[in-house]
Amino acid sequence: MQYSQKVLDHFMHPHNVGKMDNPDATATEGSPACGDQVTVYLKVNEDSKVIEDVSFLSYGCASNIATASIITDLAKGKTLDEAKQITWKDAMEALDGLPPVKVHCSVLAADTLQTAISNYEIAKGLKEVPLFSKDTIVDELKKIIYPQVGEDIVTLKMVKYVGFTDGEVIIDLNIAEFDTWRDNVVEEIREHLEKYPDIKDLKINLP
């Protein structure tokens, strides 16, 4: 068994699961085609900005469900500013770790929580709709986990160059031809970036 007891506990008996009636904000990330999809619902106190209730639905594997369970636990009772600091690494730590190949499944739930918070802030006029820039691309690349080691491709210096001009994105990757995960990483980059209407063309260069 490669999963920790904590993962199994949260997978078998997840916390905060279920659709919420009248949420203040929601977000859905992923898609069935990618193999997982998470929806997060938030109820936020408008004065204190505390997340008073949070729940999720997950179409995904054990790792995905367990992460959604723990990350909603971590967010509950926190202010929006505090909750914005929660990352997939916090979730993973709270779960006593995940097998490297399963780390990428944990990123989606953390992302969805952040998108839900962002959606709330935009709806309440607390922030502007973020402008698409090169930073958006790099932020997305930081969410892509190299399955062999369970770390993101930016931290691992697998991304050599990112360019963005006139809707054209160029990404130079440093992943060897014989690498088992090469196609997988390329496919995931496409899945992450193709949802942005600002991107007209995406070129991924490989050695």
Binding site: G35, D36, A62, N64, I65, C105, T180
Partner: peptide, 29 residues
């Protein structure tokens, strides 16, 4: 629903089956 979650839950009941889910495959496809 997704196959890896199903096979994991069945496994915890002592039942072994296989799935075509990417999440349970070595190549994640």
């Amino acid at each position: 629903i997704e196959g890896e979650a199903m096979t994991m839950m069945l496994d915890l009941q002592g039942i072994t089956v296989a799935t075509g889910s990417a999440c349970a495959s070595q190549g994640l496809s």
